[in-house]
């Protein structure tokens, strides 16, 4: 347990002294903030237009759940930003250790691979939280201006979805990083993994054979949609947890392979 915490702390320390972390955080806050602003203003304009239209026809304006609408668009946008930024967080996780030779220290210390992998994974998950938590501010703003106050559970679902999706991407990214000593290659590999998992359901088309169903099931974005709509479905949670497990398991296989240590 001590070893595990030592790895977590070391990784977090490494993140927060590296410019990559600040670049990622900065870009994430800027882009997500911009989209939040854009989504909110365009939605408000539309609602106003709808108000004018209904005034012309002399009827009462239809009730619009602005909060939920903004939320679901916002979480969709976050997922796309994740696809682009997550590889930057994970690409160095193992590749950099290998490049610097510090892997010789880690592998000759009385550490298990489980402690090492879980420690590193925990650290990137903490980083993910650091990314996500400030976005709560955006939603708070919106929440307190809503009348009546909207239910909170959809927001929590959205965050849970973002957290799980982020975790899956990070876990696969760590696996990519364990395959090479070049951060760039690791980053490119992660992009590859993510894009395939993103578009895999396009290949499925509209057919309903077993293969098509499987392809559709594998799409990481399909599972995410329900979260953005505020629906909690345990099968989606299970999907992401399995993906995280698979990523970490493959990492351990990769670390054990003799080729890794040559």
């Amino acid at each position: 347990m001590r070893n595990y915490f030592a790895i977590v702390c070391k990784e977090l320390y490494g993140f927060f002294v590296s410019p990559i972390a600040y670049a990622v955080l900065g870009v994430f806050f800027a882009v997500s903030g911009y989209f939040f602003f854009g989504i909110t203003t365009s939605l408000i304009e539309r609602v106003q237009q709808m108000g004018f239209q209904s005034q012309q026809f002399g009827s009462a304006p239809p009730p619009v759940d602005v909060f939920s609408a903004i939320m679901s668009s916002f979480f969709s946008v976050i997922s796309t930003i994740f696809l682009l930024l997550m590889p930057l967080i994970t690409m160095g996780v193992f590749a950099e250790e290998k490049k610097r030779g510090t892997v010789e220290l880690l592998f000759t210390s009385p550490l298990t691979h489980l402690q090492l992998i879980l420690g590193k994974f925990t650290a990137v998950m903490v980083f993910l939280l650091v990314m996500l938590v400030p976005t709560i501010l955006n939603l708070c703003l919106l929440y307190f201006y809503s009348d009546p106050l909207p239910p909170l559970s959809p927001v929590l679902n959205g965050f849970l979805g973002a957290f799980l999706l982020g975790g899956s991407l990070l876990s696969l990214g760590i696996f990519a990083s364990s395959l090479t000593e070049s951060q760039i290659v690791a980053g490119i590999l992660s992009f590859g993994f993510f894009i395939i998992l993103w578009v895999v359901d396009w290949m499925a088309g509209t057919g309903s054979t077993l293969a098509n169903e499987v392809l559709r099931y594998l799409s990481i974005m399909n599972h995410y949609e329900d979260f953005t709509r505020g629906v909690l479905d345990t099968s989606h949670v299970f999907f992401y947890l399995s993906l995280i497990f698979i990523g970490l398991f493959l990492t351990s296989v990769s670390l054990n392979s003799p080729k890794w240590r040559s």
Partner: peptide, 14 residues
């Protein structure tokens, strides 16, 4: 065992 590899395994940011 204490092991010093050919290039010392240092985390230079620490």
């Amino acid at each position: 065992v204490g092991y010093l590899p050919e290039s010392p395994p240092l985390y230079t940011e620490m």
